[in-house]
Computed example of a mutant assay.
Amino acid sequence: MLGIMLARPVASLIAYATSWEMVFRLSSLLMVGLVVMLNLVLPRRLPEPGLCAAALFHSMALLLRHNRVLQRKAVYHACMFAAFSFFWTTTPLLLASAPLALDQADIALFALVGVSGVVSAPIAGRLADQGLSRPVTAAVLAIAAGVLVLGSFTFANQRLELALLGGVAIFLDFCVAANLVLGQRALFSLDAALRSRLNGLYMSIFFAGGALGSAGGAWLYNHYGWQVAALSAAALPGVAMLYSLFDTQPSDTTPPSTSPQR
């Protein structure tokens, strides 16, 4: 989460100092360097022969169809991450336009404010360990929806508007990091043999939500302005929160039957 949250301000600073193309060039070099480093330092692992690729993907489809915990946690965080991407796609557009008219460096400094939200991860983990996963999930979804509604308001005073947006960024990033941990903890409490597949499905689904949030946010901001975009973003965790309240599962960590998942 820290990497995700730092990526935006770092990219803005690089674009300000050089050009937007340099962001992609440096990212490509970092990825190549990462491949080389991991190839050198990761221990060699030769797992026992297991499922073939076709059977593996079929088992993942069955997991998505039958695993209730995965379904719920994926929906919650897909909505949350979509709102997160919604906000961080449209906010720079708002900051760069009149009357705020911030440059790339100022927008990068603003984005650094949200990085503080990563401190929520260990807090959420401890609360989940105490059996509070469900109420904490509902709370972070409600907080995210509430701060996005507040963020939809605009003010003539530029400092006040920047302070409000900064507060929204902190609380939203706080909620995203917390909800991610709550979801992964619930999934990792299930069958250990399924963890990689469960986590792969979970992350694929919520990143798809994030991609849709970015695309939808930019389109709504361009056609209808900031308020409609912000309120639309608020609706996403709001719907997920209502879904969590009406859930009838006894526990986030109660493993479902593994027979259809295998």
Rank of each mutant, 00 (worst) to 15 (best):
residue 51 L to D: 08
residue 60 M to W: 01
residue 98 A to N: 02
residue 146 G to Q: 05
residue 222 N to P: 00
residue 234 A to K: 09
residue 60 M to Q: 07
residue 102 L to H: 02
residue 128 A to Q: 12
residue 261 Q to A: 13
residue 218 A to Q: 13
residue 195 R to F: 13
residue 22 M to D: 15
residue 218 A to D: 14
residue 66 H to V: 10
residue 3 G to V: 03
residue 29 L to M: 13
residue 5 M to Y: 00
residue 5 M to E: 01
residue 140 V to E: 07
residue 252 D to V: 04
residue 194 L to V: 00
residue 241 M to V: 03
residue 65 R to V: 06
residue 140 V to H: 07
residue 195 R to D: 14
residue 72 R to F: 06
residue 21 E to Q: 15
residue 172 L to W: 13
residue 209 G to N: 02
residue 105 A to K: 03
residue 213 G to T: 03
residue 176 V to S: 14
residue 248 T to R: 15
residue 130 Q to F: 02
residue 117 G to F: 02
residue 89 T to M: 03
residue 204 S to D: 00
residue 57 F to M: 14
residue 183 G to T: 01
residue 186 A to Q: 08
residue 244 S to A: 08
residue 102 L to D: 00
residue 36 V to P: 09
residue 134 R to F: 11
residue 123 I to F: 06
residue 53 A to E: 15
residue 95 L to T: 05
residue 46 L to H: 15
residue 43 P to S: 10
residue 178 A to E: 03
residue 9 P to Q: 03
residue 26 L to Q: 10
residue 4 I to F: 11
residue 217 G to K: 12
residue 55 A to W: 01
residue 226 W to I: 07
residue 93 L to A: 15
residue 241 M to I: 08
residue 178 A to V: 00
residue 14 I to A: 03
residue 262 R to I: 05
residue 155 F to M: 09
residue 62 L to K: 12
residue 216 G to N: 10
residue 262 R to M: 04
residue 92 P to L: 06
residue 42 L to I: 08
residue 236 L to F: 09
residue 16 Y to N: 01
residue 137 T to A: 11
residue 142 A to L: 14
residue 121 A to K: 02
residue 241 M to H: 02
residue 238 G to K: 04
residue 18 T to R: 01
residue 215 A to P: 00
residue 13 L to F: 11
residue 184 Q to H: 02
residue 102 L to E: 03
residue 184 Q to D: 03
residue 99 P to G: 07
residue 167 G to E: 08
residue 87 F to M: 12
residue 52 C to G: 11
residue 222 N to K: 04
residue 40 L to W: 13
residue 167 G to T: 08
residue 45 R to P: 15
residue 53 A to L: 15
residue 220 L to M: 10
residue 170 I to V: 12
residue 179 N to P: 00
residue 237 P to L: 03
residue 254 T to F: 11
residue 186 A to L: 04
residue 4 I to Y: 12
residue 44 R to W: 11
residue 101 A to I: 02
residue 53 A to P: 15
residue 262 R to L: 04
residue 56 L to K: 13
residue 26 L to P: 13
residue 235 A to D: 01
residue 137 T to D: 09
residue 222 N to M: 04
residue 81 F to G: 10
residue 114 G to I: 02
residue 135 P to W: 12
residue 240 A to S: 11
residue 200 G to N: 02
residue 148 L to V: 05
residue 128 A to L: 14
residue 16 Y to H: 06
residue 93 L to H: 15
residue 260 P to N: 12
residue 183 G to M: 02
residue 94 L to M: 08
residue 49 P to I: 11
residue 258 T to H: 14
residue 18 T to S: 02
residue 21 E to N: 14
residue 112 L to H: 03
residue 134 R to I: 13
residue 122 P to L: 14
